[in-house]
Computed example of a mutant assay.
Amino acid sequence: MEITGRIVKDASVFKVKENREVVNFSIAVNDSYKPKGSTEVKKIVTYIDCSYWLRSGLVQWLKKGTLVQLFGRIGLNVYIGNDARAHGALTFHTSDIKILVFPQTQSTKAVPAAEKDNKNEEPDDLPF
């Protein structure tokens, strides 16, 4: 199965028994639809918890805002909460990760057009 989404929080590595490590992260998958008989587009976001067991060094690239394409299998964790009600969470057991777009950092964000124009102007106090 393949899913594409944006990482919602920086990934983290957890050590488990026998020196194994797992990379955990969550993604948001955006979707939209138009209800029958309506012109209004409804937007929905699905959050999916992901785990990746193959290479923990990849964690340095899995930062908030990164657009990733994941390959693997989906699972559902169902449990009874403290409120005695059934709860569930989607999980995606990732076997391969493809990074599509890195998030913009503060230094790579676009400069507003007004600021660009001011940088190209010469100062008024030139001596000639």
Rank of each mutant, 00 (worst) to 15 (best):
V45C: 05
E2S: 14
A114H: 09
Y79G: 11
K116F: 09
I7A: 01
S107I: 11
V68P: 00
Q104L: 12
S95L: 04
F92I: 14
N82M: 06
I97S: 02
K63H: 03
L58D: 08
E21Y: 08
S26N: 13
I74L: 11
I74A: 15
P112T: 11
I97H: 04
H87T: 10
G88F: 06
L126A: 15
G57R: 09
K64N: 11
A113L: 09
T39D: 15
M1R: 08
L100F: 00
R20C: 10
I97E: 03
P103G: 03
P35N: 07
G72Y: 07
R85V: 06
I44N: 10
V78T: 15
K63E: 09
H87G: 09
P123L: 14
F25N: 02
I44Q: 10
Q106G: 02
V111D: 04
S38A: 07
L100T: 03
E2F: 11
I99F: 04
Q104E: 11
S51I: 08
V22Y: 00
G75F: 02
D10R: 11
F128V: 02
L62C: 05
K36D: 07
G37R: 04
G65V: 09
D49T: 13
N77W: 00
R20P: 01
N118M: 14
P123Y: 12
V78I: 15
V23G: 03
W61I: 06
R6G: 10
K64Y: 06
D96P: 00
R6M: 09
V101R: 14
R6E: 13
L58F: 01
D125A: 12
V16W: 06
S12D: 13
K116S: 13
L70T: 02
D124C: 03
A28Q: 07
K64W: 04
K119Q: 09
V41P: 05
R73K: 12
Q69D: 06
K64V: 01
L100S: 04
W61N: 14
Q104K: 10
K17S: 11
F25D: 03
Q69N: 14
